[in-house]
């Protein structure tokens, strides 16, 4: 699904992993259960009002704090198609790539897009198009190695191929 469109939910800077998935729910790693509590401490009604394919747009340093992979898992399992942010905290960035949650670093999109806007995202081109205004925002391209990881479908598939080859 390299090209898709969705409605935007907007968040600010420094959204931490405790806000994305509070630790009180980390006694399970069941994606469906984690999805029910996605963004709960930032917006308690969030998981109830989501539609599959919606997109999160946030400011800088999205996913800061703990290393819990439960954070991108909760977002992915909640049906969020993609997270667009001005920047990502580094562990969240790795985790999202590793589990195949699409993320885009796009400062202009982060600034210009508002809650409720609809955008079309082309992951391969790294383009985000505002469906009403027609404006196009560019994302920072992934380095070749990361593209390989993404194309393999995440780190485990990538490692599996490597292990098999040796």
């Amino acid at each position: 699904m390299a090209v898709f469109s969705g409605k935007i939910w907007k968040f600010g800077d420094d959204v931490d992993t405790d806000a994305i998935i509070p630790a009180r729910y980390l006694n399970t790693s069941d994606p469906a259960e984690l999805a029910r509590h996605c963004m709960e401490d930032a917006d308690p009604t969030f998981s109830a009002k989501l539609s599959p394919g919606d997109i999160i747009v946030a400011g800088k340093n999205f996913g800061c704090g703990s290393s819990r992979e439960h954070a991108p898992i909760a977002i992915k399992a909640a049906g969020i198609a993609c997270v667009i942010a001005e920047s990502f905290a580094r562990i969240f960035y790795r985790n999202a790539i590793n589990i195949g949650l699409p993320i885009l670093e796009a400062a202009e999109a982060s600034r210009c897009l508002a809650e409720g806007d609809r955008v079309e995202v082309d992951l391969e081109k790294g383009e985000i198009r505002h469906l009403e205004k027609g404006e196009v925002y560019r994302a920072v391209p992934f380095p070749p190695f990361m593209q390989e990881l993404i194309a393999a479908g995440g780190l485990i598939n990538y490692v599996r191929q490597k292990v098999k080859a040796t």
């Binding site: 992979e69 991108p72 985790n95 780190l155």
Partner: peptide, 29 residues
């Protein structure tokens, strides 16, 4: 697979937090 793994930098080790999938790959390879 814990963000506070950076603690061991105090001993002069390059220690860093990663996620669970990274830990799985590291345990295997």
């Amino acid at each position: 697979a814990d963000s506070h793994t950076c603690t061991y930098g105090a001993l002069g080790a390059f220690a860093t937090g990663v996620g669970s999938t990274d830990l799985a790959a590291a345990m295997a390879t």
